[in-house]
């Protein structure tokens, strides 16, 4: 029983970073209707910026991390403004290719500028300490990730519900033409959405980085976050979070009780199953276009 609970808790802990990545992807999917394959690298570049600020410039974390988060917002806005917006009458496939291209550019930039060596990120709390809940362990870093993920979800919920920009974003996502007629600057709203998405991804990156910093560190969390978003529904923020936790828990249960060897691929089996049963995901409404 202890093992089972430990497995579930470990699944929830890892699901938190998937959830943040999934949230970032869903935000952009809702704004630009494209699965954003540059989500991982939008977190990767800021992580390396944080590393430089901490290691090379010796800045304290309470300055380096906020500065990095601000950078990530600018990065997201810049990518939308400079690249996505410039695409002429893009279809979904074209946009996907553009995000893959951006992914390669950012990954190439990081690999060229910082090299391929693995690095250790200085972090205010140790990634190797843990606390006990009864007989069950949770590392302090996992606990922090869980708490931060929950806070971000709550803030996003409040932001979309009550803030003017949040409501404008929802309006733009639901009907762009109508939103524009209401005086909303939809281009600017889309750019801000990319900025917020980049911020959320960057938080995930900064919480993954204390374990190991390397150019390919965001690839797996991005894929699992994407899997979670597809499971929950690409147009539902709570769905993406729930889906990511499902992926984390199922992955751990499968690894613990069936086969560690195939643990990594089980997330994609879940995707196939969900898409067969509910093509829009568990939480998103299935829209049928009426002619």
């Amino acid at each position: 029983m202890i093992d089972f609970l430990q497995t579930i808790l470990s699944g929830i802990a890892v699901g938190s970073s998937y959830a943040l990545m999934g949230l970032g992807m869903v935000l952009i999917y809702k704004a630009s209707e494209v699965p954003n394959f540059v989500q991982g690298e939008m977190a990767l570049l800021p992580v390396f910026v944080a590393y430089v600020l901490l290691e090379s410039y010796g800045l304290p974390p309470y300055i380096a991390f906020p500065a990095t988060l601000v950078f990530s917002i600018f990065l997201g806005c810049f990518l939308e403004f400079a690249i996505i917006r410039r695409a002429k009458e893009p279809n979904v496939l074209g946009l996907i290719i553009i995000t893959i291209g951006m992914e390669m550019m950012l990954l190439g930039l990081v690999s060229w500028k910082f090299g391929a060596d693995q690095r250790a990120m200085p972090f205010p709390i140790s990634s190797y300490d843990s606390i006990m809940i009864g007989d069950i362990f949770i590392s302090t870093l996992d606990l922090l990730t869980l708490v931060v993920a929950l806070i971000i979800m709550l803030v996003l919920f409040l932001f979309f519900r009550y803030s003017k920009i949040g409501v404008a974003m929802k309006a733009t996502q639901q009907n762009e033409n109508a939103a524009r007629l209401m005086g909303i600057k939809t281009n600017r709203i889309r750019m801000v959405t990319w900025g917020i998405s980049s911020f959320v991804g960057c938080v995930a990156g900064l919480l993954i980085a204390p374990i190991l910093v390397e150019p390919y560190m965001m690839w797996d969390p991005m894929l699992k976050g994407f899997a979670g978003a597809v499971v929950g529904g690409m147009t539902s923020l709570p769905g993406a979070v729930f889906g990511a936790y499902i992926v984390g828990i199922v992955e751990h249960l499968f690894g613990g009780y069936v086969s560690i060897e195939f643990k990594s691929v089980v997330a994609f089996v879940v995707i196939v199953l969900v898409l067969c049963i509910r093509p829009s995901g568990l939480f998103a409404r299935h829209y049928v276009k009426k002619v």
Binding site: D3, Q6, T7, S10, A13, V14, M217, W219, D220, P221, E251, H252, G255, G256, I260, E261, K263, S264
Partner: peptide, 14 residues
């Protein structure tokens, strides 16, 4: 077994 793409080692440690 550990797959090259694995980043989460909790099940392995358990």
């Amino acid at each position: 077994p550990v797959n090259v793409a694995d980043t989460d080692m909790k099940p392995h440690i358990m």
